[in-house]
Simulated scan of single mutants.
Amino acid sequence: MDPDRKAGPGAPAARGCRPRRHWGWRRGRVLAGLAAVAAWLLVFPRAVPDAPGRPGSLLETFLPWLGLAVPLLLVPALVRRSLTALVALALPIAGWLGRFGGALPPPGAAPYDLTVVQHNVSDENPDPAGTARALMAAGPQLVALEELTPAALPAYRAQFAARYPHHAVHGTVGLWSAYPLRDVRPLDIAPAGFGADWQRALRATAVTPHGEVAVLVAHLPSVRLGAAAGFGSGPRDESAALLGGAIAAEEREALILLGDLNATVDDRGLAPVASRLRPPPPSFALSWPAAFPLARIDQVMTRSADVTRLWTLPATGSDHLPVGAHIRL
């Protein structure tokens, strides 16, 4: 056969040549289904039951990262040239933007009365003095610390003394203030079975130029993630319920909660606390772990006051990043 002669309409395609696949609607239905599931989880995370292993709390802790489903599904959708999958990807995009889109625009200037800093300084911090100086660089009037140790406490007291003449320490938590503190007392948020030496919450009244405000500092128990137990948040959830009760019983209306709550504001385990307070504005100020932040478990929340801006400070010697906030009373 003459090699230059073109094959007829019914002739088979030349070996090694594949017909070009066109975009179609019938392919990629599984990808479209996965996109719909991702969108459903973003919009209705509480529909996932908190069965043994706490899968619901685990999902809510890392909920923003569910947006990665979009690029992960986009690649096979393009490879398969599936119009169905591409259209379905609009669902998780819309769900993610509806929940987290408010954190995307750069924060504008907003009036505020106080600057506060919250930091789990780590009981293994090799440089407490340097950590204290780093926190003061943000210019806060209130500084809350967790995981204070007897060995590190003198360094924090020495560094903070000139700028924060008023402070209170209870167990492993502390509050330093540029304003006078009164009515200081410990809060009992220890879960059942925890020893008397587990002291991780306090309450004080800060007498500010803008009025008196109750300030609570708390460090809830850590969660444990394992193959057998799943998302082990039982002690944290019990402690959160006790903290929520203390907030409900607080007579002073204006209140600021600062602490390492070992929970994001979306985690249903924090509901006893979050339901009684105003959450901060949407922000990707993720605080843990410091090397590659995945979640913000260090919180600044208020009652009869507003957090107008929330951000993270540069890393210190801790495994958490410090969190700064502007508050309007």
Rank of each mutant, 00 (worst) to 15 (best):
G95D: 08
A109S: 13
G108M: 11
L78Y: 08
D188M: 06
L187G: 00
A88H: 12
V143I: 15
V116Q: 03
E146G: 10
L83I: 05
P126G: 15
A192W: 10
G139M: 06
R157W: 11
T84Q: 08
R133C: 02
V184A: 13
L86K: 01
I93Q: 08
L97N: 07
Q118S: 13
G95R: 01
T84D: 06
R133P: 00
A144I: 07
I189K: 07
A162D: 07
P186C: 12
G195R: 10
D113R: 10
L86N: 06
E147Q: 12
T149N: 03
P140D: 02
T115P: 08
P140L: 04
V173R: 02
V79H: 15
V143N: 04
R99V: 14
P128V: 01
T84Y: 04
A161D: 15
P191T: 02
E146A: 15
G139F: 06
A190T: 12
S122L: 05
L148N: 05
V116D: 04
F160Q: 10
Y112K: 11
E147I: 07
I189M: 11
E124Y: 07
V169W: 07
A190G: 08
I93A: 12
R80V: 11
A103N: 11
L78Q: 05
P191M: 03
L175K: 00
P107D: 04
A196S: 06
P106I: 03
Q159P: 08
A110C: 08
A134S: 10
S122G: 00
D183Y: 00
I93E: 01
P92G: 09
Y164V: 09
A144K: 04
P105Y: 01
P128H: 05
R133G: 02
N120Q: 13
I189G: 01
A196W: 07
L86T: 02
A162K: 05
L104P: 02
P92S: 10
V79N: 12
F160D: 06
F194E: 13
L153N: 07
A158I: 08
A85E: 11
Y112W: 12
G171L: 14
Q159T: 14
E146P: 04
R182S: 08
A103P: 02
P128Q: 03
R157Y: 10
W198A: 09
P154L: 14
A178Q: 04
P186L: 09
R185L: 12
H119W: 06
L187R: 05
V173Q: 05
R133E: 10
V143E: 05
T115N: 11
V87L: 15
R133S: 09
